[in-house]
Design a protein around this nucleic acid. Structure first.
Lengths: 223, 223
DNA sequence: ATATACTATCTTGTATTCAATTTTGTATAT
DNA sequence: ATATACAAAATTGAATACAAGATAGTATAT
């Protein structure tokens, strides 16, 4: 799921622990509302509370946990409103990334992806192989982020997505979503091939808006 | 310049110090490339290195400083590419906020601002009072962020802007910019009054793109 | 039985100490 | 004079120790 390993703070213990905890929280191995006790974590990672506190500081900045002074840290709960807000930010930011990637990529750069989405995935999805679809989606996403050539945008969009990663995954699993998503991506990739950035970003928005609509419909099941 | 004091971490020393340093860095009281020495800061704020390290951790997460393991922290230098990237993200994100604020605000909510931008500021700018223009701009911005009703977007857009606040201010001071900006804002506010979110966001983009063009033209003077 | 006050315990916030790495300065060899 | 090797000082990273606030439990009063 990681996109770029550039300035990872993997050198310090606190950085490593923060990464680990982030992964666990984003994938809900550590569930929403869970209390994060410093001494407990220090014992688990056999380190001092100092580094744990530094790691918690990072997670707080990234918006993954809430810290109440003198009371401790808990994993942030995803409120409905917050998920909606995240969808909205993603709609505009990822549209931007698609727009730029369309303009920046070399000629025919999206042809391969178009082929995969138009043919291979069609059958795989029909046979229930959602995992393959998700993997390709992730690859396309990664490539789009690279081609957008906007490191700062990538940084923030990844930060935001990590706050609602499970939502994204659960929506993909909804009946019919994968195929509908595949078709929209085929359309988007056609625009990208034609260097029609305006058209591509419009479809990208459509993709995210439709995911958001599904969330609104099934939120009781998803959240 | 602060927009919302909601979940400020002003309760802990490290939080307070981080806020203070952020303000100093964003306003370039502490210049780019400056080395931040832990012991030195600890002495200045008469606190322990522990809290300083926590504060530096926050600033690193916010992208304001760079920390090299075992070597220390320096205030990030604004590269040309990075400023361009920030302009691009702002263009899309602030367009979104304008779009939403236009749809969300009650009827006639922007009338007062329109009056100020259309009349009062006209003369003030003509007489060289850029400060007033900047203050009104800030008020409009604050109101837009509130009306957008998207806390997460606000959070990220503020984070991003803090990385290039001086650039924004210096561009406003460029000859002719204030008046040109005023006129564009009048147009934008007309759209907002008419609840034409599409039109309003288009002008907002125009505003940011024109600022970006000025940056490209005068970057040797601005950076 | 319920509510309040108090104490003991637990948890977080901060300071201090120790360890590891980097930087700086000096001496020596070429 | 320049380069290398080594030692000392400075700086950051991590662990421990101490202080302060919050929580839980108990005793007392009503």
């Amino acid at each position: 799921m990681k996109t770029d390993g550039e300035h990872t703070n993997a050198a310090t213990k606190s950085g490593q622990i923060a990464e680990l905890l982030q992964e666990r929280i984003a994938s809900q191995i550590i569930g929403q509302g869970t209390r994060l006790q410093e001494a407990e974590l220090a014992a688990e990672f056999s380190s001092s509370r100092t580094v744990i506190r530094e790691a918690l500081g990072s997670l707080e900045q990234r918006g993954l946990i809430t810290r109440i002074p003198n009371r401790g840290a808990i994993v942030k709960k995803l409120e409905v409103d917050e998920v909606e807000e995240i969808f909205e930010v993603r709609e505009w930011l990822e549209a931007m990334l698609t727009y730029r990637a369309t303009l920046n990529a070399p000629d025919g750069h999206w042809q391969a992806f178009h082929g995969i989405f138009d043919f291979e995935l069609k059958n795989r999805i029909a046979s229930g192989d959602i995992k393959s679809y998700n993997d390709c989606l992730e690859q396309l996403r990664t490539e789009t982020l690279i081609q957008s050539r906007n490191k700062i945008a990538v940084q923030y969009v990844n930060l935001i997505l990590d706050r609602a990663r499970v939502i994204k995954n659960r929506i993909t699993l909804l009946p019919g979503r994968a195929e509908a998503g595949r078709q929209m991506h085929v359309r988007m990739l056609e625009f990208m091939n034609e260097r029609d950035a305006e058209g591509a970003q419009a479809v990208k928005r459509e993709i995210i808006r439709s995911a958001r609509a599904l969330f609104q419909k099934y939120r009781s099941l998803i959240l």
